[in-house]
Design a protein around this nucleic acid. Structure first.
Lengths: 137, 137, 137, 137
DNA sequence: GTGGTCTAGACCACC
DNA sequence: GTGGTCTAGACCACG
């Protein structure tokens, strides 16, 4: 199984955190279906060119969140999560980021109008590159 | 001079970082005018109940960003920044957060419509305590 | 890795500044290649017989200048800088010093001829221990 | 007596040091003749918009160097220095700056040729603005 | 009084 | 092991 993860070496964000959040998004966003067998720790570490201990941590953290499940001697799987809980996960992930953004806006005295305008602009920039011609997949 | 800073001791965010971002917002948001003399390192440290070196670091970092100016033996001041650069700072601060949020949305396959709806909801929650009669919907 | 640094304890120049400028010269001058792993903060502090926090500051300042890159839990590296930017760094470092010297000459009414003659003299003194057969005069 | 001093507030160089070096250059360069009565400490401080204690320090330092002389109750004068010693002062002031520049060049592996070329360039830039048709103002 | 440097050591997070 | 944060206090330089 090949999992596409983008590592940004120059970022201050810890390695394990970068991997975690991308894996989490793929599960919560439905790109990795329940029951999928993930690569072994060693294999994944090889692919990502990082240490096994880092991957170990990622699997463990996501297991603690209930998104992964490890079977001794078999491997690590995407766990079977109720549709509803998954939806909540997905929504919260976005909502938290939006709240952070709105808080930032408030902290520098942005009016609702300024913020809406800027949001539209960002939205246009980010969604255009995907929607236009809509053949992302 | 009294500067209101909220410290969250239980947060994983480093202390100096919390102080920095709040001070930055106050300057960029126009609440601290150019030329304002900030509290001395030791006084501020006393107010915040932290060590002087932590405040020192905050002042130095913001000086490196061009937002503060310090004169030895005299004190630390909000520096005179061009109106335009300040506007850019302010806008970028919000735009970065918005982009992060939109990226999060994309990473979990949010449609533009879902995202817009959620944004309106967050907006209503955060702004209605300030504005009244807003027509968010 | 062993880095030769000369500390002048009696100088008024701050310790971290002495270390910084020598390290900077070694990087900009090409003696430390991109990707080189520098000594750990503690090891270097031991070598220089100074505190770890002083070395930390040096590494951080040079990282802010874009000359170093640090990865938590791994170490500090000479960063990969474009050939051209490095050349600019190197040239500016010398040019600034030359401009300071010429300004000093102007401030005491040195004529261009006086200055040139003195420069040749200094040049001969500093370079002849390295080159031989130079025709400075 | 009016003494033209340029203060650079944003510089890291201490105030007293900026004043000192400019005054020193004017004396050593012959623009302030021996016997000239300098402004009183208070008057000078008023002109420079700085504290009297700073001017006091400047006068004292230059007196220690032998360039100024203070008569109780009368004022501070440019002292009578032998022509030769003055020449040495003037030359050393420039030579030190040149040596610093050449050291910088050596530290980044500049060849003698590179250095000479850069020096010519700086020289042209700095001396042109004064010599050329002399309409600086 | 102010800021600037430096220490010795603690504790935590990352790999 | 590595770097990152923070403390409590010392001593110096500046105005």
């Amino acid at each position: 199984m090949w999992i596409p993860i983008q590592i940004n070496e120059s970022s201050a964000e810890p390695l394990y955190h970068q991997i975690e959040s991308q894996l989490r998004s793929m599960i919560v966003g439905g790109q990795l279906e329940a029951g999928t067998l993930l690569p072994s720790i060693r294999e994944f570490a090889g692919n990502l060119n990082c240490s096994a201990i880092t991957v170990r941590r990622v699997y463990q953290d996501l297991e603690n969140e209930g998104l992964l499940r490890t079977k001794q001697g078999t491997g690590t799987f995407v766990s079977q999560v109720e549709e509803m809980r998954l939806g909540t996960f997905r929504r919260d992930l976005v909502k938290d980021a939006l709240e952070t953004a709105v808080d930032a806006a408030l902290s520098v005295q942005y009016t609702r109008e300024e913020l809406l305008a800027l949001f539209q602009e960002v939205l246009a920039g980010k969604y255009n590159t995907l929607d236009e011609g809509g053949d992302t997949k």
